[in-house]
Design a binder for these strands. Structure first.
Length: 472
RNA sequence: GUGGGUGUAGCUCAGCUGGUAGAGCGCCGCGUUGUGGUCGCGGAUGUCGCGGGUUCGAGUCCCGUCACUCACCCCA
């Protein structure tokens, strides 16, 4: 009976240690920035009742269901008395916004509003995987939620905080594209479009399809006249790094109260983000951004990464005024969600990002013979007591092999213990009695020096694995 | 969910109209008897994804199946 060889599960990425180190480092940096802005940490359970996950009976979402092995078949979601049981079935959450909305309602009495939180967790979606698109992946969200009314300046705030967080990461250049649902809805309504959502769905594909195809679709699927189509395409064509888009929209000659409201909101976000604009992180108004999710009511965000445009947006979000409500009180929010896995996995795959070594150890203590293991353990412990990650060689092989062992893991230093007397029990590990002294070798340069385990320190940059960006 | 592509050594892949499973890299050993990397020499490793069919004979042809992958859909 041969053991079946394990095969990778598509869409459930697993990282090697060096990459996982980078991912953890990224998460730590995100945390630090979020907390610096006063966002509180929250973790929600991995599961929600299906009724919570599927708003308004939409079944198109590919949700993973959770079920006990011993549950009787009656409880299976697909059983006869369907809808009710189905609603109580547990599903793995597919984002962090919907569970957070539920969390806010559940804890409304204990939270202070406006409530600002960050949440970095795995989410699951049953869709077919491909690069940048996974079935299990990590998102990092920040949201601000208020009771009844959420001041607009929070729209600007979440954009700025995420911009700051992203700017601190070792990534290619990023472009945050901002639009406003009120602006485009108002515009489409002002144009006279009957089916506004249909127009948004088509416009959302504008960067993937040629303009003629979009025009045809606007006519066929949204029932627009050629003139209306022209106006909608003209709007989608507008983008600017400052608030000059306002005048360009004005020049199209459409008027609608909602459009005006959207224009001024978007201008406020763009102006407010001017300060975070750098050569590696740019913010712009892009009136073609629509977003598929229907709960957005105002500001919407998408983010593209230079050289990785095919991934789509790596960080998106927006304003949702009515996602959470208990019937009496509503909790409007605004948030933005970073796809940590979508961001990092393609960079790993293309060798654009990795760690300087695959283990935390800065030092490998060479083992002369098995009798010296205790003595070498003491040396390692002395180094560790001063924060230097150290491991002892697993085997007393020839030193050449032990050096190679370190080299393959990227461990920069090999420690050669001082030679010991026959009586090693009481030996002072810091001194060589008549033999060779302790020495430590930088295996990259080959430089080897006499050293004392109680005082020697590696250069600061060698203390921990470093994030490195070959070719960036 | 819809439509393509690909499955051969740890990795990247070659393998012609069917005829004894290969290369490079990596790995292990020795040269170099306790200080790696270069170089030289030697060595190990495969249910050819799985199941069936055709055939004297299948990695190769046919059918099925699974997995991976790409595009669509959708989205982080």
């Amino acid at each position: 009976m041969t053991a079946p060889k394990p095969t990778p599960l598509s869409g459930f990425p697993e990282l090697l240690p060096a990459e996982r180190f980078v991912e953890l480092q990224v998460i730590d940096q995100l945390r630090a920035t979020f907390e610096l802005h006063g966002f509180a940490p929250v973790e929600t359970r991995a599961v929600e009742p299906l009724s919570q996950l599927l708003r308004k009976g939409e079944i198109d979402k590919e949700v993973y269901l959770l079920r006990r092995l011993q549950a009787d078949d009656e409880a299976v979601a697909s059983s006869a008395d369907g809808p009710e049981r189905l609603a109580n079935t547990l599903g793995l959450h597919f984002d962090l916004t919907v569970p957070f909305a539920r969390y806010v309602l559940e804890n409304a009495g204990k939270l202070e509003f406006p409530f600002r939180r960050y949440q970095i967790q795995k989410v699951w979606r049953g869709e077919r995987p491909q690069e940048g698109r996974y079935r299990e992946f990590t998102q990092a969200d920040i949201d601000v939620v208020a009771k009844d009314v959420l001041a607009f300046h929070h729209d600007v705030e979440v954009a700025r905080v995420m911009a700051e967080a992203l700017s601190a990461l070792p990534l290619p250049a990023l472009r945050l594209q901002v639009n406003n649902r009120k602006l485009i809805e108002g515009f489409y309504r002002g144009v006279g479009a009957g089916d506004v959502p249909a127009v948004m769905r088509v416009i959302d594909k504008i960067d993937k399809l040629p303009a003629e195809v979009i025009a045809t679709m606007l006519a066929d699927e949204a029932g627009l006249t050629p003139q209306q189509t022209g106006a909608c395409l003209a709007l989608a064509d507008i983008r600017s790094a400052d608030s000059s888009f306002v005048d360009r929209v004005g020049a199209l000659g459409i008027s609608d109260p909602l459009l005006d409201e959207g224009l001024s909101e978007l201008a406020e976000v763009i102006d407010g983000c001017a300060a975070v604009d750098t050569d590696r992180f740019t913010v712009e108004a892009d009136l073609s951004i629509a977003r598929g999710l229907d709960y957005y009511t105002g500001t919407v965000f998408e983010t593209r990464m230079a050289g990785f445009e095919s991934l789509g947006s790596i960080c998106s979000g927006g304003r949702y005024d009515s996602l959470a409500s208990d019937g009496r009180t509503s909790y409007p929010g605004v948030g933005i969600s970073l796809g940590v896995t979508r961001l990092l996995t393609p960079l790993f795959a293309r060798k654009k990002l990795t760690a300087s070594r695959s283990v935390p150890s800065a030092v490998l203590v060479a083992l002369p013979d098995e009798q010296s293991r205790r003595r070498c353990g003491d040396i390692a412990q002395s180094l560790r007591s001063r924060g230097i990650a150290t491991e002892v060689s697993p085997l007393p092989q020839k030193y050449g092999k032990q050096i190679r062992f370190a080299e393959r893991r990227g461990i920069p230093f090999v420690w050669f213990p001082a030679s010991s007397d026959a009586d090693s029990s009481g030996a002072d590990v810091s001194r060589a009695d008549g033999g060779t002294p302790h020495e430590v070798k930088d295996i990259r340069s080959g430089e080897q020096v006499v050293a004392d385990p109680s005082t020697w320190e590696p250069p600061l940059e060698d203390l921990r694995p470093q994030v490195v960006q070959p070719g960036l």
